[in-house]
Simulated scan of single mutants.
Amino acid sequence: MPMALFDWKSGNSGPVLHGPGVILRAPRALDYHPWADLREASRDYLQPWEPAWGEDDLSRAAFKRRLSIYDREMELGTAYPFFVIDEATGALTGAITLSNIRRGVAETGTLGYWIGRPYAGEGRGTAAVETLLDFAFDNLMLHRVEAACVPHNHASKRVLEKAGFRHEGTAKAYLKINGVWADHLLFAVLESDLGGRGLPESTL
């Protein structure tokens, strides 16, 4: 797996991760229009795999609320949200989050991501997942990262498997997806599964 290069920014802007063809960085206020446009263009593509969208889901106010939550979670160290940026063009192509980070006896986090319809099938999801795993294991020093997807989301299943995740079982009615409680395949990857590559080199 390629090693992620990263640099730490000041305040709550979070780390910036550099992977193969992608840059992962925290969402910013100026991202509202690219984010809303991409989500709207991908609505039919994404909704089958996500919680039901609220009526104001793509509004500026909703985006501002998201940023406030993201800032708080990063302050607490319980989640690290990133937008997936195309390294060559600077275009916003999706998002990935390491959330529900538990320390102590667990040292575990949960991974979730989406890629917009115009960029699907181009390997960006796999690159983003691999880059975030480097950060999770080599910088946050987690022991385990978990993920889940509905059984018929074959594209997401392939991304997880390519990144080293192993199928551990099925959870019945695990999450409410698009308004319906849905079974999910449960996946996980351990730091030891990926060989412990050591700390990535800083770009600073």
Results as ranks from 00 to 15, higher is better:
58 L>W: 05
70 Y>G: 03
189 V>N: 01
48 P>I: 05
83 F>Q: 10
136 A>K: 01
203 T>W: 13
151 P>H: 12
93 T>F: 07
123 G>Y: 04
169 G>Y: 06
41 A>K: 11
165 F>K: 02
87 E>W: 08
120 A>Y: 09
17 L>M: 09
6 F>A: 09
176 K>H: 00
124 R>H: 13
184 H>G: 04
107 E>L: 15
51 P>Q: 01
77 G>C: 04
55 E>Y: 09
60 R>W: 10
198 G>F: 06
102 R>N: 09
10 S>C: 11
145 V>N: 01
119 Y>L: 07
66 R>M: 14
74 M>R: 15
92 L>W: 06
39 R>D: 06
177 I>F: 02
154 H>G: 08
35 W>G: 03
170 T>W: 03
6 F>T: 04
40 E>I: 13
60 R>G: 08
168 E>P: 01
148 A>D: 10
106 A>V: 09
167 H>E: 14
166 R>I: 07
39 R>K: 15
158 R>A: 11
21 G>I: 12
127 A>K: 04
62 A>E: 08
27 P>V: 05
68 S>I: 09
63 F>P: 00
200 P>Q: 02
71 D>T: 10
191 E>V: 04
13 S>E: 12
14 G>D: 02
203 T>Y: 11
36 A>V: 06
26 A>Y: 05
84 V>F: 00
51 P>Y: 02
105 V>H: 15
134 D>E: 09
110 T>N: 11
68 S>C: 08
177 I>H: 02
85 I>S: 03
130 E>V: 13
40 E>H: 10
133 L>F: 01
168 E>S: 05
47 Q>V: 14
101 I>H: 01
183 D>S: 02
111 L>D: 01
43 R>G: 09
189 V>G: 00
59 S>M: 13
13 S>H: 14
39 R>G: 07
194 L>I: 01
104 G>S: 14
43 R>S: 11
94 G>A: 02
9 K>D: 10
150 V>T: 08
134 D>S: 15
199 L>Q: 13
85 I>C: 03
145 V>M: 02
98 L>W: 03
87 E>H: 11
179 G>M: 02
31 D>G: 12
96 I>D: 00
146 E>K: 02
32 Y>N: 01
62 A>G: 06
167 H>R: 14
7 D>I: 13
55 E>A: 15
55 E>M: 11
78 T>V: 05
121 G>H: 13
197 R>K: 11
123 G>K: 04
199 L>Y: 09
165 F>R: 00
187 F>N: 00
160 L>C: 00
106 A>H: 13
31 D>M: 11
135 F>M: 07
153 N>P: 10
32 Y>F: 08
15 P>T: 06
47 Q>H: 12
114 W>M: 12
9 K>C: 11
190 L>W: 04
10 S>M: 13
136 A>I: 00
102 R>E: 11
166 R>D: 08
55 E>C: 09
37 D>I: 12
34 P>K: 04
192 S>K: 09
71 D>Y: 11
118 P>T: 06
29 A>L: 14
167 H>M: 08
94 G>E: 01
41 A>I: 05
109 G>M: 00
198 G>V: 08
82 F>G: 05
194 L>D: 01
82 F>E: 06
